[in-house]
């Protein structure tokens, strides 16, 4: 086994000469083993999603009576979807709308604030700059779920518990995004360009809007995706903050259905939780595949956090 470990052609060319065929068998074997292990791992990651897809196409009887990884005796995705959107006067659509508002609206505003602040920290000089930035970094250090109860306690003092704002406003704060935006601004917006516009007499704010912001497009998408998934995934904060079902995000609604399906003799809620999960996951998976490039950009920058 001399030839492994890299796909660079240069290495291939520089390996010592070998008798052809002498090591063909072990090579074939290890190639099968390597790809076999990868395929098995992928089976593990994909199977639960396949189960979700199959389960959403079954009626109650087939859900419990047929193999989970195959279709049932009848194809009931349509009735399941109809049931999902009709249940509790169409509350699922309401949750979907809430989630879109919390996640899309929240992430958009949060990202705008982050990019503006990160740009200012990178390109402008002002008093106490590094002290303020240090305070924001302190915010990065505290884990998000440790914030949920303190936010709830303050919100109950302020009287915004069980309101839209109680969940929406805290999600506008994304300290890590400011850090990311500063890093991106240093990398993507050349100081000379800013200097040139300054010489031309353009105001700093106009320079940011017309020069800086377009150059920070990648940063914007990356930070948006980060915060969007953060809000979409958040469970602890809405769980403690909300009691009115009409304000729930999807996560909390699905959690309720899952709980009732297991506990309170509402077996039909199984199908609600399953179909509801599928409908929630499909757009995320599509967005995720389409926007791969940005995810990876954010992850590698995030790893340096």
């Amino acid at each position: 086994m001399t030839l492994t470990a890299t796909s660079a052609p240069a290495v291939r060319a520089s390996t010592p000469h070998r008798k052809p065929g002498a090591r063909l068998m072990p090579r074939l074997l290890s190639r099968t083993a390597v790809n076999g292990v990868l395929a098995l791992a992928m089976l593990y990651t994909v199977m639960p999603l396949l189960w979700l897809l199959m389960a959403a196409t079954k009626n109650m009887r087939d859900l419990f009576g047929t193999n989970g990884f195959t279709f049932g005796r009848t194809f009931d995705l349509g009735p399941n979807l109809a049931h999902l959107f009709a249940a509790d006067d169409g509350i699922y659509l309401r949750w979907l709308g809430n989630t879109a508002l919390y996640a899309v609206g929240g992430a958009f505003i949060a990202t705008t604030l982050c990019v503006a602040a990160g740009y200012a920290f990178d390109k402008l000089s002002f008093p106490l700059k590094e002290k303020i930035f240090g305070l924001i970094l302190l915010g990065v250090l505290v884990p998000a779920s440790a914030m949920a109860l303190p936010i709830y306690l303050l919100a109950s003092k302020a009287g915004i518990v069980n309101t839209f704002w109680g969940v929406f406003l805290p999600s506008l704060v994304f300290p890590f995004g400011v850090y990311l935006a500063r890093v991106f601004s240093a990398a993507y917006v050349p100081a000379e360009v800013i200097e040139a516009t300054r010489v031309d007499g353009a105001g700093d704010l106009r320079t940011f809007v017309s020069i800086g912001l377009p150059m920070l497009r990648t940063a914007f998408v990356t930070i948006f995706l980060f915060q969007f998934t953060g809000i979409w995934n958040s469970f602890f904060l809405p769980l403690v903050m909300l009691t009115d079902q009409h304000l729930y995000p999807l996560n909390l609604g699905l959690y309720t259905w899952q709980t009732t399906s297991l506990n309170q003799g509402h077996p039909e809620d199984y199908l609600l939780a399953i179909t509801g999960s599928l409908v929630a996951v499909v757009p995320l998976v599509i967005a995720f595949v389409v926007l791969q490039r940005y995810w990876k950009a954010g992850m590698t920058t995030g790893a340096v956090k």
Binding site: L113, F126, I136, V173
Partner: peptide, 25 residues
């Protein structure tokens, strides 16, 4: 002028940060 622009760009974030991160803690 830079200071004023910075206040404009950072202010909104900082206000929310102080209200929903620092104040709860």
């Amino acid at each position: 002028r830079q200071g004023r622009t910075a206040a404009l760009l950072i202010g909104p974030f900082l206000l929310l940060f102080l209200t929903f991160s620092i104040a709860p803690l």
